[in-house]
């Protein structure tokens, strides 16, 4: 396997930042987030998992999917600008796994989602293996691993003196073409593996739908959107038209697609005011059923990659690993019921 030195990698990133849009882990007021960077010096190399997943690079929280312009009585639809090529650098194996789940939803079958497809096509994923599994990580229980190259274009792994370069796709190989790389001496490191979490088989989930467990679990849920917004696979959105500009004989309207979350109280409210998920329990249950049942049924992959972000960010300790343990027990409903 080929190795690139830290210095050569930084030089390569500097050059890349000049040629294309580059997203990479960056410290924003002390919080590591995937953000646009203009040079390698802005990139954090020593991080666990950025607080937000890199889904923002392909599925932004606000996406202007179409604009309408009105000149007097004529309405025109300006052509959307072509997506710029972008490289996401430093994403973790679970993050690439998450993008694969989004791919299944947005472009896995016809009709594809045009906005997502355009950005996805223009994106190259250059990952960085995790040296270990951290608190809350359970990727190995969700079919991943801290050094899993699946769904990446390139995966780098830190070794003494630099990084091994595993260029997997043609896109990835093109990025590293012409670079002088040395040959790895010895074995690449194998990261430590964390605990194994029991994941109930898909077919078992419907039996748990009416458990009182969900209402009891959700009593402490505050109904915010943190778990869904930090999640690399949550992809619900709301679409609304908004006046962007208005003056005499001219107006422009934007159709905005913005992130939405099934945990919010009014997410599922229908015209007329009916809410089919009227309780916190029904809403929180949906989040877990979506991940482990609906997603697999409708699109193929499981909707959880074991990144642990929701565990870290939940203000009231709703812990997806604890939930997976609980639902795997047959008598959980009676154990926690009064």
């Amino acid at each position: 396997m080929k190795v690139i030195t830290q210095e050569a990698l930084k030089a390569w990133l500097d050059r890349l930042a000049g040629e294309t849009a580059l997203f990479a882990p960056r410290s924003v007021d002390g919080i590591v987030l995937y953000r646009p960077v203009s040079r390698s010096g802005e990139i954090v190399f020593d991080y666990t998992r950025p607080k937000m997943s890199p889904k923002e690079a392909i599925f932004p929280s606000t996406d202007n999917i179409v604009s309408f312009e009105k000149h007097s009585q004529d309405v025109t639809l300006p052509e959307p600008a072509l997506e710029k090529q972008q490289v996401v650098f430093g994403l973790r194996p679970c993050d690439a796994h998450g993008i694969n789940v989004l791919d299944a939803v947005f472009i896995g079958r016809e009709p594809v989602d045009l906005s997502y497809a355009r950005r996805r096509e223009a994106t190259t994923l250059v990952g960085l293996s995790c040296p270990q599994m951290w608190e809350g990580c359970f990727c190995t229980s969700m079919g991943g691993a801290p050094d899993d190259p699946s769904h990446m274009d390139v995966l780098l792994t830190a070794v003494v003196g630099g990084y091994t370069v595993n260029a997997i796709t043609e896109k990835g190989k093109a990025l590293f073409a012409g670079l002088e790389l040395s040959e790895l001496t010895g074995e690449p490191p194998h990261p430590t593996v964390g605990e194994t979490v029991p994941v109930m088989p898909v077919g078992q989930w419907p039996k748990r739908f009416t458990d009182r467990y969900w209402e009891l679990l959700a009593e402490r849920c505050i109904g915010c959107r943190v778990c869904t917004y930090v999640c690399p696979t949550c992809r619900c959105f709301d679409v609304r038209d908004q006046v962007a500009e208005r003056r005499t004989n001219y107006a422009r309207y934007d159709r905005l697609r913005c992130w939405d979350a099934c945990t919010g109280p009014n997410y599922r409210v229908t015209a007329g005011g009916h809410n089919p998920r009227p309780t916190k329990g029904a809403r929180l249950r949906n989040r877990f059923f979506c991940k482990f049942y609906y997603m697999s049924q409708d699109y193929g992959p499981t909707g959880c990659v074991g990144c642990g972000r929701c565990i870290e960010a939940c203000p009231v300790n709703i812990d997806i690993v604890e939930v997976l343990h609980d639902v795997s027990k047959t008598s959980v409903a009676t154990e926690v019921t009064a």
Binding site: V28, L33, S61, I222, C224, R225, V226, Y229, G264, P315
Partner: peptide
């Protein structure tokens, strides 16, 4: 504005 910029509008502040 620098602080608001990284807000993700998750409404956790309001919900809690």
């Amino acid at each position: 504005l620098k602080q608001y910029d990284r807000c993700i509008r998750c409404y956790a502040c309001r919900q809690v």
